[in-house]
């Protein structure tokens, strides 16, 4: 899994390890969804992102709506839409889907850019979802969902601690760690911070992401 043998590039071990760990995590029971549900969410996210029809295992209609919108048109979310799907699914279930879709799109994007076909998803692990209580001090503030801590990307999924930890691992491995973010003069794998931010800004602009 994720041997990157097709790629013309040498892939850093840290990235390959993170990809494998992410796929293993997707297959495990989550906080609100089973392993089978999570793989179904991942498969639909990939199919939607690639504009292809696929067989989607049974998911609630609201969950399908979330996967489709988050995969294909994330900037079209609104407070009203989020309130609606949260009312149907529950806030933790909504955020768990967001974390799965975001990680799948991130890793599929990376693999495609380095010349590798999408990695097949693993077989789901059996067993029910394992509930984890949300942080006691979570609040919305001006955001549209509850979160604990400062309203910054590493905390936005914090209502589902397992999802937040997994998402932060993917993001930090692909982008940079919090410590590296402190320096405007960081160079990672010969790419300077300014070059890194050109890529980041272009992707965000293409996704019409104001943040």
């Amino acid at each position: 899994m994720f041997d990157f043998a097709e790629s013309p590039f040498d892939i850093p071990q840290s990235i390959a390890d993170m990809c494998r760990r992410t796929w293993e995590d997707l297959a495990e029971p989550g906080t609100t969804w089973t392993g089978a549900d999570r793989i179904a969410i991942a498969e639909r996210a990939r199919d939607t992102r690639l504009d292809r029809d696929g067989e989607t295992a049974e998911l609630p209609p609201a969950a399908v709506d979330v996967v489709d919108l988050m995969s294909g048109a994330p900037a079209t979310t609104s407070r009203e839409w989020i309130d609606g799907v949260v009312a149907e699914l529950g806030e933790q279930a909504y955020l768990e889907i967001v974390g799965i879709v975001a990680r799948v799109v991130a890793i599929d994007t990376f693999t495609r850019l380095v010349g590798v076909a999408p990695e097949p998803f693993p077989e789901a692990s059996p067993g029910p979802a394992v509930a984890e209580p949300p942080p006691a001090k979570a609040r919305k503030g001006k955001a549209w969902v509850n979160m604990a801590g400062f309203p910054v990307p590493p905390n936005v999924l914090s209502l589902v601690p397992k999802a937040q930890r997994a998402t932060n691992l993917t993001a930090e491995t692909l982008y940079m760690t919090g410590a590296q973010m402190e320096s405007p003069d960081t160079t990672i794998d010969t790419l300077h911070r300014t070059q890194i931010e050109v890529v980041a800004t272009t992707v965000s602009h293409g996704n019409e992401c104001f943040y």
Binding site: A75, V98, V114, Y211
Partner: peptide
Amino acid sequence: PDAAVRAAAVAGAFELYNRIVDATGLPV
């Protein structure tokens, strides 16, 4: 090549970041 791989990684990371901030209404 090392810079190219890192650039691909950053692009993937921002596909992630864009989704989690838009899904949660993180304010600017």
